[in-house]
Nucleic acid binder design. Sequence first.
RNA 1: GCCCUGGUGGUGUAGCCCGGCCUAGCAUCAGCGGCUGUCGCCCGCUGGACGCGGGUUCAAAUCCCGCCCAGGGCGCCA
Length: 443
Amino acid sequence: MAGRIDLRRRVRVADARYGEVVLAGFVQDIRVLKNIAFIVLRDISGVAQIVFKRGSIPDELFEKVCSIPRESVVAVQGFMVESSIAKLGREVIPVEFEVLSEASSPIPIEFLDSSVETSIGRRLDYRFLDLRNPAVSAIFKVQSVITGLLHEFFRSRGFIEVHTPKIVAEATESGASVFPVDYFGRRAYLAQSPQFYKQMLMASGFEKVYEIGPVFRAEPHHTPRHLCEYTSIDFEVSYIESYHDVMDVVEDMIVYVADRIGGICGREFDILGVKPPRIVKGLPRITVREAYKMVESRGYKPTYMEDLDTRGERVFSKAVEEEYGCKAAFLIEFPWRSESRPFYVMRKRDEPDWAYSFDLIWMGLEVTTGGQREHRYDLLRSQCIEKGYNPDNFSFYLEFFKYGVPPHGGSGTGLERLTMRIVGLDNIREAVLLPRDPERVKP
RNA sequence: GCCCUGGUGGUGUAGCCCGGCCUAGCAUCAGCGGCUGUCGCCCGCUGGACGCGGGUUCAAAUCCCGCCCAGGGCGCCA
């Protein structure tokens, strides 16, 4: 056992076949008996057991193996054999063994023992270690498949993927706070939504665009569903008849992901101990006015002509589940005057107090917001004024509507919120590698 | 922005209400020893902690004040 192991011959544990193999990974556990020792080696794909028998390897190596700190990185070359004794059903008989990087001990967080659950704060401080936990990395494997499926979905439907600026001159849409940045001595902001640019591209005749990218919100929310930086799944489509056409896209998109994710990520769902989501086409579309009644009949008093608040949304979700047997539903027709509805939404033709706007509520969580946009210049301008803004501040945006723009609409979905619902998380910070919240900007 | 809760070994907790019985318990972890097959290994021994500063008191992990840090709820939102 003196040779170097050629790492180019390495295979992942899950791909290893019987016969000669090279594996490399972290030492998850070492169990030492008098004349036999076991190393459980973990890589991104799974775990394998290596058996060291005193006598069949040099004593010096045996002693060395016994003293390797947990979580060190090692490589082994040997033979994968079937084993009726090993619970994994197979194990590696080593020929060569190498420590590639020794870990210090103790490890600052405990991440593999389910009896000792490290708090989220400390886990995030040591996120690079936390992510070694298969139940944590599984979330991101699923998320990667989600975004892959989303790209597949949009492309198959003729959407053009775009990348809009993240440094912008003006604060977009509503009053949502923005992060100022110093742009060569001028004030600029981090984009809190690709909204205006998506709409610009409708004016450019792109017809269907989508973007999956970061957005920034400088709001000091202290909740398990808010981040100051998150990934937004945005799309915009032209030539719609109504905002129902937009909801159709959202619904198809969610169903596309939900239908496929379980089949692709079976192992990850097993590790996470949850069932893949079941979302079927035909989600109820319930007006806010109906929702007021639904929650009121369940003892919750809504504020009329306002959006449902957090508790209201939860009661609503429960009502939807009871009455429709659905975990998700569209909430439609929002009060125009509500602060959270921006000036660019199209108002209802016969009832201008209501807007062609929708939210997708999935088990009490607002996952998506969207609607039909007002594309008629004069109306858009007057709505801007009515909402209390100075149209001069939005001149670059209003320009888009002066030279012909198709009727259009679109929506934005929070990738992390979607991930939460798909893999069953109750804190959004579990759904992002390195969360940014009002208290945390590192690591 | 407002409102709660909490900071005890590397990690997670018990103790705090009702100060002394705390030389601070347990689990995990780490170190040593034992066991030809472990697999949430097991058994024995050993190691390690009261966020910081001030106050009250004969006596403070425990009560009071300030600070720092961390969680959570609300508004709001994807």
